[in-house]
């Protein structure tokens, strides 16, 4: 104590004190501040980021660059946010394995934990859209009727009236939404993957996004009138009318005509 007391008027003492105070403040802030994701049970830790960085270096850096700043064929990931990473990786679109007009959905390569670690790493590089909370995407809390109106004005021109998918130019396409999870739908709306535009909060509010999700999920209950024939509209109906309807009826005509002759 004598030694400490002897040095308390040292001319460096204020500097050291300020440094210590900053360190403590920072540590307390880091511990107490609300986790940046509106999320969620999984709090990202420095450990996650570290694992994510390792996964990134092993699986993504070839195209996106070691610093995730992008290369000629792959975009920079600075600022794309955790939502974009989670969407692309959890649907199997990334890591992309072949050149195609757009990244196709394929079997998922990483489990949920690894996906979150990758997302944490990218989110640590720069702020961006975050993974939505479970409540934000809960279809039972949405209004499917409002969702229907929003969907037909904003989504149906590419994804078809009920989300069965549709064609875009030069081999690109808007995928079917039958198997997309509510979280992925939300992430797609806020990040605009591939050819999809971004629907930000002033365009479609978070509540409205939940309504859209409620509408899309409601389509999975099937159609009241029987088989939905792919929900593709009159073309598939016409195909069934010709192949099944006319086919069976001509078969019946052949049968009736053959009976006596």
């Amino acid at each position: 104590m004598k030694a400490l007391a002897a040095r308390r008027h040292h001319r460096f003492a204020p500097v050291v004190l300020i440094m210590l105070a900053l360190l403590v403040t920072g540590a307390v802030y880091a511990a107490l501040a609300p986790s940046s994701a509106q999320a969620e049970d999984a709090v990202t830790t420095a450990d996650d980021i570290e694992h994510g960085a390792a996964l990134f270096q092993a699986n993504c850096a070839t195209c996106h660059g070691v610093d995730a700043v992008g290369k000629a064929d792959a975009p920079s990931l600075i600022g794309v946010g955790a939502a974009a990473v989670h969407f692309q990786v959890s649907t199997g679109r990334m890591p992309m394995q072949s050149n195609a007009p757009q990244a196709p959905v394929k079997p998922v390569q990483f489990d949920e934990k690894q996906t979150m670690q990758l997302a944490a790493y990218i989110a640590s590089l720069a702020p961006g859209p975050e993974i939505p909370s479970a409540e934000a995407v809960d279809p039972t809390l949405g209004d499917p009727a409002r969702g229907a109106a929003l969907f037909s004005t904003n989504c149906a021109m590419c994804h078809n009236a009920v989300g069965a998918g549709g064609a875009l130019s030069e081999g690109k396409y808007a995928p079917a939404l039958w198997n997309t999870t509510p979280t992925q739908i939300y992430e797609a709306m806020i990040t605009g993957p591939q050819s999809m535009p971004v629907f930000n909060e002033s365009n479609i509010t978070p509540e409205e996004k939940r309504d859209v999700i409620a509408y899309v999920v409601a389509q999975r209950d099937g159609t009241p009138g029987g088989e939905n024939l792919g929900s593709l509209g009159p073309v598939s109906e016409g195909l069934w009318a010709w192949i099944l309807g006319i086919g069976v009826l001509i078969g019946a005509a052949v049968w009736i005509g053959a009976k006596s002759s």
Partner: peptide
């Protein structure tokens, strides 16, 4: 609105 796959009957 016009949805994708908007076609008339066959």
């Amino acid at each position: 609105p016009v949805s994708a796959g908007a076609q008339p009957d066959w």
